[in-house]
Protein backbone atom coordinates (compact mmCIF):
# COMPACT_ATOMS: atom_id res chain seq x y z
CA UNK A 1 0.00 0.00 0.00
CA UNK A 2 1.01 3.62 -0.41
CA UNK A 3 2.90 5.37 2.33
CA UNK A 4 2.72 8.99 3.47
CA UNK A 5 6.43 9.81 3.67
CA UNK A 6 6.46 13.55 4.21
CA UNK A 7 4.12 16.44 5.04
CA UNK A 8 5.18 20.03 4.53
CA UNK A 9 3.52 23.43 4.82
CA UNK A 10 5.10 26.33 2.96
CA UNK A 11 4.13 29.85 1.87
CA UNK A 12 3.49 30.97 -1.71
CA UNK A 13 4.12 34.71 -1.78
CA UNK A 14 4.81 35.26 -5.51
CA UNK A 15 7.62 37.72 -4.76
CA UNK A 16 9.73 34.97 -3.12
CA UNK A 17 11.20 33.27 -6.25
CA UNK A 18 12.72 36.52 -7.55
CA UNK A 19 14.60 37.00 -4.26
CA UNK A 20 16.95 34.20 -5.40
CA UNK A 21 18.46 36.69 -7.84
CA UNK A 22 19.45 39.20 -5.16
CA UNK A 23 20.75 37.00 -2.37
CA UNK A 24 23.71 39.25 -1.67
CA UNK A 25 21.48 42.13 -0.62
CA UNK A 26 18.51 40.31 0.90
CA UNK A 27 17.19 41.47 4.27
CA UNK A 28 17.53 38.87 7.02
CA UNK A 29 13.89 37.74 7.01
CA UNK A 30 13.80 37.17 3.26
CA UNK A 31 17.10 35.28 3.41
CA UNK A 32 15.68 33.03 6.12
CA UNK A 33 12.64 32.42 3.91
CA UNK A 34 14.85 31.33 1.02
CA UNK A 35 16.97 29.15 3.30
CA UNK A 36 13.85 27.51 4.73
CA UNK A 37 12.72 26.64 1.21
CA UNK A 38 16.18 25.27 0.42
CA UNK A 39 16.17 23.11 3.53
CA UNK A 40 12.73 21.73 2.70
CA UNK A 41 13.78 21.16 -0.92
CA UNK A 42 16.64 18.95 0.31
CA UNK A 43 14.40 17.10 2.75
CA UNK A 44 11.74 16.50 0.12
CA UNK A 45 14.43 15.15 -2.19
CA UNK A 46 15.68 12.85 0.58
CA UNK A 47 12.14 11.56 1.21
CA UNK A 48 12.11 10.24 -2.41
CA UNK A 49 8.38 10.73 -3.04
CA UNK A 50 6.90 9.10 -6.14
CA UNK A 51 4.12 11.68 -6.09
CA UNK A 52 3.42 15.01 -4.44
CA UNK A 53 -0.14 15.83 -3.43
CA UNK A 54 -0.09 19.63 -3.66
CA UNK A 55 -2.82 21.45 -1.73
CA UNK A 56 -3.40 25.16 -2.13
CA UNK A 57 -6.01 27.80 -2.73
CA UNK A 58 -6.46 29.32 -6.15
CA UNK A 59 -6.44 33.14 -6.04
CA UNK A 60 -9.45 33.91 -8.25
CA UNK A 61 -7.31 33.08 -11.26
CA UNK A 62 -8.63 29.68 -12.27
CA UNK A 63 -11.91 29.56 -10.33
CA UNK A 64 -14.27 32.50 -10.02
CA UNK A 65 -17.56 33.27 -8.30
CA UNK A 66 -19.47 32.07 -11.37
CA UNK A 67 -18.59 28.47 -10.59
CA UNK A 68 -16.69 28.07 -7.35
CA UNK A 69 -15.57 24.65 -6.11
CA UNK A 70 -14.80 24.31 -2.40
CA UNK A 71 -12.44 21.34 -2.84
CA UNK A 72 -11.34 20.16 -6.28
CA UNK A 73 -9.04 17.40 -7.53
CA UNK A 74 -7.16 18.14 -10.74
CA UNK A 75 -7.07 15.02 -12.91
CA UNK A 76 -5.76 16.34 -16.21
CA UNK A 77 -2.75 14.56 -17.75
CA UNK A 78 -0.44 17.43 -16.81
CA UNK A 79 -0.27 20.25 -14.27
CA UNK A 80 0.90 23.55 -15.69
CA UNK A 81 1.20 27.13 -14.50
CA UNK A 82 1.34 29.96 -13.71
CA UNK A 83 -1.03 32.38 -15.48
CA UNK A 84 0.53 34.82 -17.94
CA UNK A 85 -0.34 37.83 -15.81
CA UNK A 86 1.44 36.24 -12.83
CA UNK A 87 4.48 35.49 -14.97
CA UNK A 88 4.49 39.09 -16.12
CA UNK A 89 3.92 40.74 -12.73
CA UNK A 90 6.31 38.62 -10.65
CA UNK A 91 8.70 37.02 -13.12
CA UNK A 92 7.53 33.50 -12.18
CA UNK A 93 8.92 30.67 -14.28
CA UNK A 94 6.71 28.06 -15.90
CA UNK A 95 6.09 24.79 -14.08
CA UNK A 96 4.93 21.74 -15.98
CA UNK A 97 4.77 18.21 -14.64
CA UNK A 98 2.76 15.03 -14.99
CA UNK A 99 -0.34 14.42 -12.88
CA UNK A 100 -0.48 11.05 -11.11
CA UNK A 101 -3.87 10.16 -12.58
CA UNK A 102 -4.42 6.90 -10.73
CA UNK A 103 -3.99 8.52 -7.32
CA UNK A 104 -6.04 11.57 -8.39
CA UNK A 105 -8.94 9.30 -9.37
CA UNK A 106 -8.53 7.21 -6.22
CA UNK A 107 -8.80 10.32 -4.01
CA UNK A 108 -11.77 11.55 -6.01
CA UNK A 109 -13.69 8.28 -6.23
CA UNK A 110 -13.07 7.12 -2.68
CA UNK A 111 -13.51 10.61 -1.29
CA UNK A 112 -16.96 10.79 -2.81
CA UNK A 113 -17.84 7.36 -1.46
CA UNK A 114 -17.22 8.96 1.92
CA UNK A 115 -18.81 12.28 2.71
CA UNK A 116 -16.64 14.65 0.69
CA UNK A 117 -18.31 16.09 -2.40
CA UNK A 118 -15.05 16.74 -4.19
CA UNK A 119 -15.22 18.54 -7.50
CA UNK A 120 -12.89 17.58 -10.32
CA UNK A 121 -11.52 19.12 -13.48
CA UNK A 122 -9.49 18.22 -16.54
CA UNK A 123 -8.91 21.84 -17.58
CA UNK A 124 -7.10 24.23 -15.30
CA UNK A 125 -3.95 26.25 -14.82
CA UNK A 126 -2.05 26.20 -11.53
CA UNK A 127 -1.62 29.70 -10.13
CA UNK A 128 1.18 30.93 -7.88
CA UNK A 129 -0.35 29.12 -4.87
CA UNK A 130 0.91 25.90 -6.47
CA UNK A 131 3.71 27.08 -8.74
CA UNK A 132 5.71 28.97 -6.10
CA UNK A 133 6.06 26.09 -3.62
CA UNK A 134 6.49 23.47 -6.36
CA UNK A 135 9.16 25.46 -8.18
CA UNK A 136 11.11 26.03 -4.96
CA UNK A 137 10.65 22.53 -3.48
CA UNK A 138 10.92 20.43 -6.64
CA UNK A 139 12.54 22.60 -9.32
CA UNK A 140 13.39 19.50 -11.38
CA UNK A 141 9.67 19.25 -12.38
CA UNK A 142 10.17 15.49 -12.53
CA UNK A 143 7.80 14.29 -9.81
CA UNK A 144 4.14 13.69 -10.67
CA UNK A 145 1.65 15.69 -8.63
CA UNK A 146 -1.99 15.57 -7.66
CA UNK A 147 -3.34 19.11 -7.28
CA UNK A 148 -6.04 19.64 -4.67
CA UNK A 149 -7.58 23.11 -4.93
CA UNK A 150 -9.26 24.63 -1.88
CA UNK A 151 -11.47 27.69 -1.74
CA UNK A 152 -9.99 30.05 0.83
CA UNK A 153 -10.94 33.34 -0.86
CA UNK A 154 -14.58 33.53 -1.98
CA UNK A 155 -17.17 33.12 0.79
CA UNK A 156 -18.91 30.98 1.77
CA UNK A 157 -15.79 29.09 2.83
CA UNK A 158 -15.86 25.86 4.82
CA UNK A 159 -14.74 26.15 8.45
CA UNK A 160 -11.42 24.82 9.70
CA UNK A 161 -13.12 21.74 11.08
CA UNK A 162 -13.97 20.64 7.52
CA UNK A 163 -10.45 21.32 6.23
CA UNK A 164 -9.17 19.24 9.17
CA UNK A 165 -11.60 16.42 8.41
CA UNK A 166 -10.63 16.45 4.75
CA UNK A 167 -6.94 16.29 5.68
CA UNK A 168 -7.66 13.30 7.91
CA UNK A 169 -9.66 11.64 5.13
CA UNK A 170 -6.99 12.29 2.49
CA UNK A 171 -4.42 10.56 4.66
CA UNK A 172 -6.65 7.50 4.98
CA UNK A 173 -7.28 7.55 1.24
CA UNK A 174 -3.56 7.82 0.46
CA UNK A 175 -2.80 4.91 2.78
CA UNK A 176 -5.58 2.91 1.14
CA UNK A 177 -4.15 3.45 -2.35
CA UNK A 178 -3.34 0.03 -3.71
CA UNK A 179 0.11 0.71 -5.04
CA UNK A 180 3.61 0.74 -3.62
CA UNK A 181 3.78 4.51 -3.80
CA UNK A 182 5.66 6.98 -1.64
CA UNK A 183 3.46 10.05 -1.23
CA UNK A 184 4.47 13.50 0.04
CA UNK A 185 1.85 16.12 0.78
CA UNK A 186 2.73 19.80 0.47
CA UNK A 187 0.13 22.33 1.56
CA UNK A 188 0.56 26.02 0.90
CA UNK A 189 -1.10 28.85 2.75
CA UNK A 190 -0.08 31.67 5.00
CA UNK A 191 -0.42 33.51 8.27
CA UNK A 192 -1.97 37.02 8.41
CA UNK A 193 -2.51 38.42 4.96
CA UNK A 194 -4.19 41.55 3.60
CA UNK A 195 -3.19 41.69 -0.07
CA UNK A 196 -5.38 44.32 -1.71
CA UNK A 197 -6.63 45.84 1.53
CA UNK A 198 -5.62 48.96 3.45
CA UNK A 199 -3.49 46.94 5.89
CA UNK A 200 -1.57 45.26 3.08
CA UNK A 201 1.80 46.73 4.09
CA UNK A 202 1.30 46.80 7.86
CA UNK A 203 4.04 44.16 8.17
CA UNK A 204 6.52 46.99 7.52
CA UNK A 205 5.67 48.36 10.97
CA UNK A 206 4.66 45.11 12.65
CA UNK A 207 6.17 42.03 10.93
CA UNK A 208 4.11 39.64 13.07
CA UNK A 209 0.69 40.34 14.53
CA UNK A 210 -0.44 39.00 17.90
CA UNK A 211 -2.49 36.41 15.99
CA UNK A 212 0.62 35.24 14.12
CA UNK A 213 2.61 34.88 17.33
CA UNK A 214 -0.09 33.16 19.34
CA UNK A 215 -1.13 30.85 16.48
CA UNK A 216 2.47 29.83 15.92
CA UNK A 217 2.82 29.02 19.61
CA UNK A 218 -0.43 27.04 19.61
CA UNK A 219 0.69 25.02 16.57
CA UNK A 220 3.58 23.74 18.66
CA UNK A 221 2.29 23.72 22.22
CA UNK A 222 -1.44 24.42 22.24
CA UNK A 223 -4.67 22.47 21.94
CA UNK A 224 -4.92 21.69 18.21
CA UNK A 225 -8.61 20.78 18.42
CA UNK A 226 -9.37 24.16 19.95
CA UNK A 227 -7.32 25.94 17.26
CA UNK A 228 -9.08 24.04 14.47
CA UNK A 229 -12.54 24.82 15.90
CA UNK A 230 -11.65 28.49 16.13
CA UNK A 231 -10.61 28.72 12.46
CA UNK A 232 -13.90 29.75 10.91
CA UNK A 233 -13.88 32.06 7.92
CA UNK A 234 -15.28 34.96 9.97
CA UNK A 235 -12.67 34.55 12.69
CA UNK A 236 -9.73 34.35 10.29
CA UNK A 237 -11.17 37.14 8.14
CA UNK A 238 -11.23 39.39 11.20
CA UNK A 239 -7.42 39.04 11.27
CA UNK A 240 -7.05 40.04 7.61
CA UNK A 241 -9.17 39.34 4.58
CA UNK A 242 -6.49 36.95 3.23
CA UNK A 243 -5.87 35.19 6.55
CA UNK A 244 -8.36 32.38 5.73
CA UNK A 245 -5.41 31.09 3.65
CA UNK A 246 -4.31 29.56 6.97
CA UNK A 247 -7.00 26.93 6.36
CA UNK A 248 -4.62 25.02 4.10
CA UNK A 249 -2.34 24.60 7.11
CA UNK A 250 -5.36 23.35 9.06
CA UNK A 251 -5.76 20.72 6.31
CA UNK A 252 -2.20 19.57 7.09
CA UNK A 253 -3.07 19.32 10.79
CA UNK A 254 -5.79 16.84 9.80
CA UNK A 255 -3.19 14.77 7.93
CA UNK A 256 -0.70 14.54 10.76
CA UNK A 257 -3.07 13.78 13.63
CA UNK A 258 -1.70 14.82 17.00
CA UNK A 259 1.92 14.94 15.92
CA UNK A 260 3.83 18.21 16.30
CA UNK A 261 6.14 19.22 13.48
CA UNK A 262 9.70 17.85 13.39
CA UNK A 263 10.96 21.15 12.08
CA UNK A 264 9.42 24.56 11.67
CA UNK A 265 10.32 28.16 11.04
CA UNK A 266 8.34 31.38 11.02
CA UNK A 267 10.16 34.07 9.07
CA UNK A 268 9.18 37.71 9.08
CA UNK A 269 10.53 41.18 8.59
CA UNK A 270 9.65 44.69 7.50
CA UNK A 271 9.88 43.79 3.79
CA UNK A 272 7.84 40.59 3.66
CA UNK A 273 4.67 38.79 4.62
CA UNK A 274 5.01 36.42 7.58
CA UNK A 275 6.05 33.04 6.12
CA UNK A 276 5.35 29.81 8.00
CA UNK A 277 7.18 26.55 7.31
CA UNK A 278 6.28 23.22 8.96
CA UNK A 279 7.58 19.73 8.29
CA UNK A 280 6.65 16.27 9.52
CA UNK A 281 8.94 13.34 8.69
CA UNK A 282 8.19 9.74 7.77
CA UNK A 283 9.35 8.61 11.22
CA UNK A 284 6.96 10.95 12.99
CA UNK A 285 4.07 10.21 10.64
CA UNK A 286 4.44 6.46 10.72
CA UNK A 287 6.33 5.69 13.92
CA UNK A 288 9.80 4.16 14.19
CA UNK A 289 8.58 0.59 13.77
CA UNK A 290 6.97 0.90 10.35
Amino acid sequence: MARLVEVMCAPHDPTIPATRHRRATLPEGEMRTLEAFELLQARLDAARPDVIVMVSGDHLNQWFMDDMPQFLIGKAPRARGPFPHERHAFGLDDYDTEIEGALARHLLNKGIEGHFDLSYSNEFTLDHGFVVPLSLLRPEQDTPVVPLFTNVMAPPIPPGRRFHELGHAVRELIEGFDADTRVAVVTSGHMTNNIGGPEMLDFAEQPLTDWDTSTWHRLHHGDIGELVDECTFDHLYSHGHGTPGFLDYVFALGLVGDERPDWSELTSGPTQLPAAFLQWTDRTLNGAAR
Partner: peptide
Protein backbone atom coordinates in the same frame (compact mmCIF):
# COMPACT_ATOMS: atom_id res chain seq x y z
CA UNK B 1 -13.03 48.18 -1.98
CA UNK B 2 -15.49 50.34 -0.05
CA UNK B 3 -18.32 48.87 -2.12
CA UNK B 4 -17.35 45.31 -1.23
CA UNK B 5 -15.43 44.28 -4.33
CA UNK B 6 -12.94 41.54 -3.48
CA UNK B 7 -9.73 43.31 -2.38
CA UNK B 8 -7.55 40.71 -4.07
CA UNK B 9 -9.33 41.29 -7.38
CA UNK B 10 -9.05 45.07 -6.97
CA UNK B 11 -5.33 44.65 -6.33
CA UNK B 12 -4.82 42.41 -9.37
Amino acid sequence: VEGGAHPFLVFN
